[in-house]
């Protein structure tokens, strides 16, 4: 343990070993490494991160990773270097994520405490992206729209993206139709959060390793890390 770590004093955890010995630490650590965003809804996991944040930031820095606490209060891990694999969200996940973020920002969802439906997501996407364009974006190998199966096919791709986003902690899937929106959805609005030019904001995110400017061939790619070091 470094002198810096030893001198840190956080409510609940005065030393790094205390945080690591917490029974919740293994599942928090594995969830972060799997790309999960942890917000206040996760109770004990969030509290552990909030209380041990300075200690764990130093801990993950040694691997070359960054433990980020967003202004909206959720945590996630950004891999730098090659010791941890990383992935870019696919076009489908990005489109669905932005539609969910729009729903999250809508005061109408306050009435239901953040509950939304899959149909609302599809409606937003069809309205803002256009039905034909949406179909082609979600099916990059197809050149034209097949009217007979377009609606069903779009719905299937949206469902696939939602499952992935749920795994990453952006949304909870309540049943086959209903969803619970989570605070980390704000991350999809990060390029437009500040009032400056979105392109500059996006460039900053890219330079910090939190986003990548993508093309079709990049999407969903998994970048293999190097040697994994046990924590």
């Amino acid at each position: 343990m470094s002198a810096t770590e030893a001198s840190m004093s956080v409510e609940g955890y005065e030393r790094l070993d205390q945080a690591i010995e917490d029974p919740l630490f293994p599942e928090v650590d594995l969830a972060l490494r799997a790309g999960r965003h942890i917000d206040v809804e996760e109770g004990g996991r969030y509290e552990l991160l909030a209380e041990a944040q300075p200690l764990l930031e130093g801990f993950y820095q040694r691997y070359g990773w960054e433990l980020v606490r967003a202004p909206a209060g959720y945590f996630f891990l950004v891999p730098h270097g090659e010791r941890l694999s990383r992935r870019q969200l696919t076009t489908g996940e990005m489109l669905v994520g932005q539609a969910l973020a729009l729903l999250y920002l809508d005061p109408a969802t306050l009435e239901t405490a953040g509950a939304a439906t899959r149909s609302q997501v599809v409606e937003i996407l069809q309205h803002l992206v256009g039905e034909a364009r949406l179909y082609l974006e979600l099916h990059p190998r197809r050149r034209k729209v097949d009217e007979r199966i377009a609606a069903e096919s779009v719905r299937r791709e949206v469902d696939k993206a939602l499952r992935s986003l749920a795994h990453l902690g952006f949304v909870d899937l309540v049943d086959e139709e209903r969803l619970k929106l989570r605070t980390p959805l704000i991350r999809f609005a990060e390029p437009v959060l500040a009032m400056d030019d979105p392109a500059s904001a996006l460039a900053r995110l890219v330079s910090k390793g939190r986003a990548a400017l993508g093309t079709d061939k990049d999407e969903g790619t998994q970048e293999e890390g190097g040697d994994e070091v046990d924590a």
Binding site: G35, L84, S85, R86, R87, Q88, L89, T91, L205
Partner: peptide
């Protein structure tokens, strides 16, 4: 287009 990056162990 841009893509968010997430850890993926």
């Amino acid at each position: 287009r841009f893509h968010l990056v997430a850890a993926d162990m």
